[in-house]
Design a protein around this nucleic acid. Structure first.
Lengths: 182, 182, 182, 182
DNA sequence: CATGAATGAGGCTTCATTCAT
DNA sequence: TATGAATGAAGCCTCATTCAT
């Protein structure tokens, strides 16, 4: 309820999410995060007792929520699965151009650093969440269960691979042609 | 030219390639590399004057060569593009299971650390090399130029995305179903 | 006065006494004490306004009281000074074996950290209290004043030195042969 | 052989020995040691790969050597065991007054911090070395083997206990009356 | 050509304490 | 009275690199 505690923690998460996505877990120093969040040094361990890894998990969760909203926004008004998938890819391409979302934020944040089981499991959990969200929409849009499962996974694979190639080419073009493969 | 210098340099590259692929650029300390390579402390800057980044580029190049050999070995005896692509994915799945090739070694090695132009450009160059190699085989196997280009890129995207999902799931299964989407 | 405040303070003292004896003043973090005492974070400065040093003094006093009880229990039924001293050493040996009383709790608690005059003086005061207590019994058991003084101090020295050697050897044996030197 | 490496390492050990004896293992920050030794920050881990604990062991060894020299110097010219023991206690009293040797340097250095087996064992080893050195002299001065053993241990206990009381009283007097108890 | 000692900036984390409630 | 959030200094250690040999 208190509205003084929240902002600091949120600023920390936001700063961390941005930095981890850009430079990877090990590439980010906590001093950078603290500076970006304008938070005092000691406050990090108050909000995230396990330090950097806790912060990474929170940041990944935050980024995942953003992705889930993106999926929902793309499929909600769609009339076919393909239409929704295409909208999603175009939205990602736009983010790529405007804000530097040029990688999967989860991979950059959780698939490095101490290969802790917790972080790996959390990444896996998040990815399955994305796929499940897409799968829901696929079902709603009339695909059979097995077709839906295949296409949801396929879309995930295309987006991840597309991010890779787009980053290498410094161009969002690939992302926009992805769904012609579905 | 001396035959004592070469092995040391090669051991350095091999150790670096393995470690970078596993833990990412920033996740690897030069001390680890030197220990794994059983190389004396000072010899690194003898062989790689620019230090860590030079080493990373060499390691990525080495890993890329291995990938190129893998592509060649997969397509050389193939009768159709799909057959070659499938063989490649199965070979990668096998490597995933046996040796922990669970990520793209280039991404882990070059897409972190100081976002130096040199490293980014080298990654891009390597990726285009993979695609070009596949494209060659596609042409040889009878695909039209535009179809070949589309499929070569598509295969690249599938493999990169598949690596991602396979790593998250700790299972190489995805890799083996990839080419049903071609 | 309130009967909820007292237990908390006592739990704090007990936890602190145990930890300080085992790991020394600087070796113990207040977080450890609070965790062991299951006390809320802010309550420490409520009960001990001067913080850690206050807590150390209280813990040392508490430990000293236990030692004074031990001295009394050893000499109360004794027929000679030597018998009482021997009983005391045997009791300490038993504590060494059962509970890890392997050092002088006063030394571990007060002879480190900021060499504040207050802490040093308190340690000195406590030690003289032990010696005085033994001296009382010595007088009661018929020793001349000067003999009593010598023997009380000597016993103190033997016990302190014995604690040292027993800790190094991880064995209480030395403690049990101490009074053959009186 | 090289005479450039030695001084820095030695300065580190000397500074550490002094500080650890005075303030205890946990009471000393490495920054203090580095400052006292006028050594650059990074050099510590070059000379002591395991960091603080390595340094503590080296410092304790250095302090122990000093004590062994003190024992030798005291007993070498002595005609009886009691004479040697008394000289030793007087020398320690003098050090107490002049240089602040008011505690056992081994106890302060090794019996705190992470209760690592290595540190405990080293402390034990050092103590037994002191006792063995005294025992040698006892034998040479004509004591029977069992008497020598008893007296050597007894002297150790007296000195350790004496250090304790002398520190509490801020006076070296106790140390000078110690051997009247032998 | 090859080495290992030396360096100091920066890494993450824990600390005892204060403060607003 | 009692609490837990907030703080920033200090903790130990690892880093990539340079340098003298």
């Amino acid at each position: 309820m208190s509205n003084t505690a929240r902002p600091t923690k949120d600023r920390l998460i936001l700063a961390a999410a941005t930095l981890f996505r850009t430079r990877g877990y090990h590439g980010v120093g906590l001093a950078d995060v603290l500076a970006d969040a304008k938070a005092p040094k000691g406050s990090l361990y108050h909000h995230f007792p396990n330090g950097k890894s806790d912060l990474a998990i929170a940041a990944a969760t935050w980024a995942s929520d953003e992705m889930l909203r993106l999926i929902a926004a793309s499929f909600d008004g769609a009339e076919t699965f393909e239409a929704g998938a295409t909208t999603l890819c175009f939205k990602l391409a736009k983010l790529f151009d405007k804000t530097g979302w040029d990688t999967c934020p989860i991979a950059a944040t959780l698939f490095e650093g101490p290969d802790s089981t917790e972080m790996r499991d959390h990444a896996s959990h998040i990815y399955e969440g994305w796929i499940a969200e897409v799968l829901d929409h696929a079902g709603r849009l009339g695909l059979t269960e097995s077709d839906a499962k295949t296409k949801a996974e396929h879309l995930f694979v295309l987006i991840q691979g597309g991010w890779m190639l787009a980053r290498a080419r410094r161009s969002s073009d690939v992302l926009r042609t992805l769904t012609s493969q579905l």
